[in-house]
Write a protein that binds this DNA or RNA. Structure first.
Length: 568
RNA sequence: CGGGGUGUAGCGCAGUUGGCUAGCGCGCAGCGUUCGGGACGCUGAGGUCGUCGGUUCGAAUCCGACCACCCCGACCA
């Protein structure tokens, strides 16, 4: 490939649309361009890098026993109606209508179509398990597309679906997928953490996310440096008892005029939010529930939903206060609380020396003690973690980080096979629903994640396995130096070995070429310049380490191939 | 969907109290000089000022609607 053609349109300045550094680099390095919010064109180099990632995914999926298929991207509405997700998916689904008025969507995922595909074969238990996957463009009308390829409305994803006679067999494939995903991430030079996750709209019993820790990550995750425990922020299970409350003391009423916030009350009382019991009022259906957590924690609504057994709730709005005249907003506490349902975070059990609302305007209690002044019942884990919380598995202290979700695996169970009547014939001749798993990897998201993790001030530093191509040949021509001829020789020698090359044969100044080469970030640069006439040498530059080596022209191609083998 | 911001040449931006031929930098084309970390000179091409409507003798500039993009906000590969 030649730089002197339109193949690599690099940009000197940062495009105004660039959100993350990796986004900026992909645009500036001429790898991609945007067409609309969350919708991108991949130019030749970006396309090659994505193809490399998808090849790795394909190899590891095949190795793990999965088989590739191609499903439609245009889905009829029927299967989605049957599973109930035509409604459940809501506005995130890209919908359209054909000329006859039939409804379709652009597939956001493919559980329904794949389940039906397998169900139509009416398998017997002898033919199971089966694991089918595709690498396809998916569509989701995201509320907020962000960070380039990290969160697009059109994106590339590998999605796999496994079908089993029983849960034990699903477990085997689930573990195989987990291993395959870790191998894929590691081959792409992404260091990945596996965390427990929620099943969300996909549904099912258990799931794990594969996270790359990054400041532009959109998820919060909690992990333990002491063991392999990790979980999504909303799912984690920290142990309670993290220095909440104070010494046991007699309870007393304190005048706290206009102190509605935890911060205000804490500083007025000469303590911190660690001494205060926080109350958040939720309207659950038509009922009011006072949720109590430690003053330094947040209520996690995903946990609350699990504790309440419903998702039909929201924080009480100002305009709803008159519906519940018995409560005193800002001064609600568990002592003497009447006419309102209460729910306590596990940490409240046994806490003493608490500052709480007194259920009276402008008054708080000091020294409230659970078990003496009130009873924390019912109790549930409804509070979020903070750094330093105790790990539920070992004695380590939890840490919190942002992460990019590059993959997600789910145990679905019968969630789709029952409504879609995806049955197999069991040993006893009776039809039973297949037990399913589903597994996704965001390949276009991975592409940008690789850039996010492998870059420096000069540009991208592609890991060799993902790099669009291995070599950039830079020609710095001087009068009668024979550089163009030398470059042509190296290019043809490398191509004879099966390597693609990017030849910078532009009539541009050396600085432009060096800077563009670093920006584009191919692993090995071969620089053919003033050293050639002087000493017969060309120069190799390793993009990742910056290391340089001089080689005689005749050994350049072999030396470049060797350098590539050593590159990260 | 709610709140905030921005739309002017391929890219980054100025101009916006209404006024003459709409500017600057980069990039692009031609010529010459340069040639190891984003060189220099000369010449030149390139714009329905997001769209539609209104006010006005006159609109990039004022008014209205719409569209697009970006930022902040609540389950996503």
């Amino acid at each position: 490939m030649r730089f002197s053609r339109v193949t690599v349109p690099t940009l000197k300045e940062k495009p105004a649309e660039a959100e993350a550094v990796s986004h900026e680099l992909l645009l500036r390095a001429g790898m991609m361009r945007s067409f609309a919010a969350g919708i991108y064109t991949l130019l030749p180099l970006g396309d090659r890098a994505l193809a490399n990632i998808e090849s790795i995914v394909r190899e590891e999926m095949n190795r793990a026993g999965a088989l590739e298929v191609v499903l439609p991207t245009l889905h009829p509405s029927d299967p989605w109606m049957c599973s109930g997700r035509w409604q459940a998916y809501g506005p995130e689904m890209m919908r359209l209508t054909d000329r006859a008025g039939r409804e379709f969507c652009l597939g956001p995922t493919a559980e329904e179509l794949m389940t039906i595909t397998v169900a139509k074969t009416a398998p017997s238990y002898r033919e199971l398990p089966v694991n089918l996957y595709q690498i396809q463009t998916k569509f989701r009308d995201e509320m907020r597309p962000r960070f380039g390829l990290i969160r697009g409305r059109e994106f590339r994803m590998m999605d796999a679906y496994s079908f089993h006679a029983d849960e034990d067999d699903l477990e085997v494939t689930y573990q195989a997928m987990r291993e395959a995903y870790l191998t894929i991430a590691s081959r792409c030079s992404l260091s990945t953490m596996v965390v427990e996750a929620s099943t969300g709209l996909i549904g099912g019993k258990a799931s794990h996310e594969f996270m790359v820790v990054s400041e532009i990550g959109e998820d919060l995750l909690v992990y333990c440096p002491g063991c392999d425990y990790g979980a999504n922020f909303e799912l984690e299970r920290h142990r309670p008892g993290h220095a909440f409350g104070g010494e046991s003391a007699p309870i007393e009423e304190v005048h706290t005029p206009d102190m509605m916030s935890i911060e205000d009350v804490a500083s007025f009382m000469g303590t911190t939010p660690r001494g205060v019991l926080k109350c958040v009022m939720y309207v659950v259906g038509k009922e009011l529930v006072a949720v109590f957590v430690a003053g330094y924690r947040e209520v996690i609504e995903a946990k609350l939903a699990a504790a309440l057994g419903t998702e039909d709730f929201h924080v009480m709005r100002d305009d709803e206060r008159e519906l519940f005249p018995t409560v005193v907003p800002g001064f609600t506490g568990p002592v003497g609380l009447a006419g309102v349902r209460a729910l306590f975070d596990q940490e409240v059990k046994g806490a003493r020396g608490l500052i709480t609302g007194a259920n009276k305007v402008d008054y708080h209690y000091r020294g409230a003690e659970e078990g003496r002044d009130f009873v924390a019942e019912p109790v549930a884990d409804v509070a979020g973690p903070v750094e330093g919380d105790l790990c539920p598995v070992c004695d380590g202290e939890l840490k919190i980080a942002r992460g990019i979700e590059i993959g997600h695996i789910f145990k679905l169970g019968l969630k789709y096979s029952e409504p879609l009547e995806a049955n197999f014939t069991d040993r006893d001749g009776v039809p039973k629903p297949m037990v399913m798993g589903t597994y996704g990897i965001g390949t276009s998201r991975m592409l940008q994640t690789v850039v996010e993790q492998h870059r420096d001030d000069g540009g991208i530093r592609w890991p060799a396995a993902v790099a669009p191509m291995p070599f950039e040949i830079i020609v710095i021509a001087t009068e009668g130096g024979g550089q163009p001829e030398a470059a042509a020789r190296i290019v043809s020698e490398l191509e004879a070995q099966g390597f693609e090359t990017l030849l910078d044969d532009r009539d541009a100044s050396p600085g432009i070429k060096f800077n563009d080469a670093d920006l584009v970030g191919l692993p090995v640069q071969v620089i053919i310049g003033k050293k050639l006439p002087a000493s017969g040498n060309v120069e190799l530059k390793m993009r990742y380490t910056g290391e340089r080596r001089d080689l005689p022209l005749g050994e350049a191609a072999a030396g470049a191939a060797r350098a590539l083998a050593e590159a990260p």
